[in-house]
Write a protein that binds this DNA or RNA. Structure first.
Lengths: 213, 213
DNA sequence: TCCATTTTAGTCCGAATGGGCAATAATGCT
DNA sequence: AGCATTATTGCCCATTCGGACTAAAATGGA
């Protein structure tokens, strides 16, 4: 009579991983799964499994599904800031047109490396959960504030046609994200891998060539 | 002792709705829910409820969740064709630049009216289900084939900068869709309703002004 | 009129979900 | 050495999921 092996309940002898590494593994997995399935569609068990853990541990570290979502968003903002910081420092000493080029190049590279970002925006922008409010306040507003001044300068100097800024911002950021957000579509329709360096460069070039003439 | 009202099992006396109307109600609800939650996240019960029916009826009409998805996609293509047909007829007699203007105007209006479309593309482009293959073949390929010829003519005539077509197509279509796919974000960040006629016109104008100079 | 077909709703099932909680090994403070 | 805290797992719960099946009213042809 083979009894089901009564694995003892408590903490496993699984030591060696630094404390912070567990939290980060969970947050990375959460960004991936949330971007793929949306908030409701994502399951704590899938997120935990993607990080190689049990779902109770996710709840231990982040209390709630909602709490995990907020922590994952803060993590995403930190990733973005880290990625853009250097380019932002380079750009601030450049004249407007070059500054724009530098920022677009950096942003396209960021979109290619973190397609979860744009996907999460698409997911969370539906319905009127409090999550969309959080995103608008903590992510969209600062981003757009920074872009608005630069775009107005470019219009004043005649490098881009005069136009209300908001449509322009959405045109530019969506254009920058597209081939990476839709990477699977491009792969299925063209057999191309848009995350390659050559594709990133080609996309940046096409976008800058269209906007600055 | 109030017995739970034993609603008889069978078909309710709910007559009067034309047969085809039930199917269409289900398909419209399916497009909405699929675009909001993705394939796995969407529940037949939610789709049925959105159409005012029981979930068994959805399975009666479309057998499967996968079958419903395919039927909903065909329905979406029919909606798109119906919306674009008239503009396409107008455009074919026009010179290239005007033809481009006509097509962009029509496409932006379509994106505003059917934001589900772009949202579904974002959802289904993740992972490599057979659904992304279906979409690439039945939706993306014909769309891009039609656009490619027009864009090459515009480049030959010097109206847009010379560039590989694929990046250009993704830039243009993402730019056309953005404010409507992200309608909730725009509402939360700016308090604006991008589905209004004025917003649609402003967006079209900004896009055409940037592309054709 | 009768009866087969079509269209609808209700119910049961096994699996998965978010959350609550107990058990317990590791760690670190005193 | 002893003890509180931290980090982790296993298990239980009510709810919901997709799907299979049953019950029955409406419809239309014979």
């Amino acid at each position: 009579m083979s009894e089901a092996p009564p694995r003892p309940r408590g903490r496993p002898a699984r030591n060696d991983r630094p404390v912070e590494e567990t939290r980060e593994a969970i947050l990375s997995a959460a960004l991936d799964i949330f971007s793929r399935r949306g908030f409701e569609g994502a399951s704590l068990r899938d997120i935990a499994a993607a990080a190689g853990l049990e779902h109770s541990l996710v709840r231990y570290h982040f209390t709630d599904k909602a709490g995990l979502w907020r922590a994952a968003m803060s993590h995403l903002i930190a990733l973005m800031d880290a990625h853009m910081l250097e380019s932002w420092r380079t750009a601030r000493t450049q004249p407007p047109v070059e500054r724009f080029r530098t920022m677009v190049r950096a942003y396209v590279r960021y979109c290619a490396r973190h397609p979860e970002h744009a996907r999460i925006m698409v997911h969370e922008t539906m319905g009127d959960s409090d999550r969309v409010t959080w995103i608008a306040e903590h992510i969209i507003a600062p981003q757009h504030r920074a872009l608005t001044r630069l775009l107005e300068t470019l219009m004043d100097e005649g490098h881009i046609p005069r136009s209300p800024v908001r449509p322009l911002i959405y045109i530019l950021s969506a254009a920058a994200q597209a081939p990476f957000t839709l990477a699977g579509e491009v792969r299925a329709a063209y057999g191309a891998d848009t995350s390659s360096a050559a594709e990133i460069e080609a996309h940046t070039h096409a976008l800058l060539g269209l906007v600055l003439r």
